[in-house]
C-alpha cells in the first residue's frame, strides 16, 4: 500500500493505535499459555498446587523434570518419535517425489487421469474402519510399518511439490537432453538440486506432522507399548493422570507433584519444535502459499 497523507489524520491515528493494541492482545493471548506452561514446569509443586503461579516460576526447581525423565517408557518413546520422524519423512519424500516429478512433466502420458484418481482420494476415502482393517489384514498392526507406510504420501503435500516442479522451465530439461543427459541424471543432478527449497518445505511439513501425530499410533499400535511414540506417552501423563503410579504416598502434594510433572512433560515434547520453528517458518509459509494458489 502506498503510504499516503491520510495516515496523519486523527481518526486514522486512533484506528492505528487500536489496531496495535488489538494485535498485541492477540500476541499476548497466544504466548501466555505457553509461558504459563513453562513457568509451572519449573515451579515448586507446593506453590503450583496452591495456585500461586501466574506468570513466572515460583520457587524455581528442576524436580518435575527429574521425575519426567524417570517416567517409565518416556525416553524410549522419545527415541521412537525421533525414529518415526526421520524414517517416516525419508519415505514421504521419496514417494512424494516419485509422484510429483512425473505428474509435473507434460510428456508424462496419462497424467490427467492419474491426477484425477489421486485428487479423488482427497474428496472421498474409505474411512477409519476400512483403513484399520486393511492395516490389520496386511499384518502391519503393532509394527513400525503401520506408522510409516499408510501415510507415505500426503496428497496435499504432493500437489504442492508438483506445483513447485511445474514452475521449473521446460527449456532447462530440453537443454540437458540435448547434452545427452538421461532422465535419471536429469532428476538427480538438475531437478532435485534446483528444488532444494521446495523439498525443504515439504520435508518440514511431513516432519512436524510425524512429530505431533498420535492418532495413527493409538489405533495401529494397540499392544506394542515399546513402539509407541512420545505423543501417546504424553497423553497418558498429561490427560490420564497415570502419574499416580510413580508416586507411592497418597499425600496432599501428590496432586501438586503430578501437576508440575504434566507441565514439564509438555515442555519436553514441545521444546524441539519451539526451538526450530522461528527459523523454519518461512519455508512453511512458502508451502501454504503454493497450496493456496493451486488449491
Amino acid at each position: 500500500m502506498a503510504s499516503n497523507l491520510s495516515d496523519r489524520t486523527i481518526p486514522r491515528r486512533i484506528f492505528l493505535a487500536l489496531d496495535v493494541v488489538f494485535l498485541l492482545f492477540i500476541a499476548a493471548v497466544t504466548l501466555y499459555p505457553i509461558i504459563y506452561v513453562v513457568s509451572m514446569s519449573f515451579s515448586d509443586e507446593v506453590a503450583a498446587i496452591q495456585n500461586k503461579v501466574w506468570l513466572l516460576p515460583v520457587n524455581p526447581t528442576l524436580e518435575a523434570y527429574k521425575n519426567v525423565f524417570q517416567y517409565p517408557g518416556l525416553l524410549r518413546s522419545y527415541g521412537n518419535t525421533i525414529f518415526y520422524t526421520i524414517a517416516g519423512t525419508a519415505i514421504n519424500i521419496v514417494f512424494t517425489m516419485c509422484a510429483a516429478y512425473p505428474l509435473s512433466r507434460k510428456r508424462f502420458k496419462g497424467r490427467s487421469v492419474f491426477s484425477f484418481l489421486i485428487v479423488f482420494t482427497m474428496l472421498f476415502n474409505g474411512g477409519m474402519i476400512p483403513s484399520y482393517l486393511l492395516v490389520k489384514n496386511l499384518h502391519l498392526l503393532d509394527t513400525r510399518w503401520a506408522i510409516l507406510l499408510p501415510g507415505a504420501i500426503n496428497t496435499w503435500n504432493m500437489i504442492i511439490m508438483r506445483s513447485f516442479l511445474q514452475q521449473l522451465p521446460e527449456e532447462l530439461e530440453e537443454a540437458a537432453k540435448i547434452d545427452g543427459c538421461g532422465d535419471l541424471r536429469l532428476l538427480l543432478q538438475i531437478i532435485i538440486p534446483l528444488s532444494i527449497p521446495s523439498i525443504a518445505t515439504i520435508t518440514l511439513f511431513y516432519a512436524v506432522a510425524h512429530w505431533n501425530s498420535f492418532f495413527q499410533a493409538m489405533i495401529y499400535l494397540p499392544r506394542a507399548k515399546d513402539l509407541r511414540p512420545l505423543q501417546l506417552i504424553l497423553r497418558d501423563i498429561v490427560l490420564q493422570n497415570q502419574t499416580d503410579s510413580m508416586i507411592t504416598s497418597a499425600s496432599q502434594d501428590v496432586v501438586g507433584l503430578s501437576e508440575t510433572i504434566k507441565y514439564a512433560t509438555i515442555v519436553v515434547a514441545v521444546a524441539p519444535i519451539l526451538c526450530v520453528y522461528p527459523f523454519i517458518q518461512k519455508y512453511f509459509v512458502a508451502g501454504v502459499m503454493v497450496g493456496a494458489v493451486k488449491g
Binding site: I26, A27, T30, L31, I34, V208, W211, N212, S213, F214, Q231, L234, R235, V238, L239, I266, A269, V270, I273, L274, Y277, P278, Q281, F284
Partner: peptide, 13 residues
C-alpha cells in the same frame, strides 16, 4: 511469527 506458534504444537499438547 508469534501467531504461527500454536500451529506447530501437537493436538495432544
Amino acid at each position: 511469527t508469534i501467531s504461527y506458534l500454536p500451529h506447530f504444537i501437537s493436538t495432544v499438547v
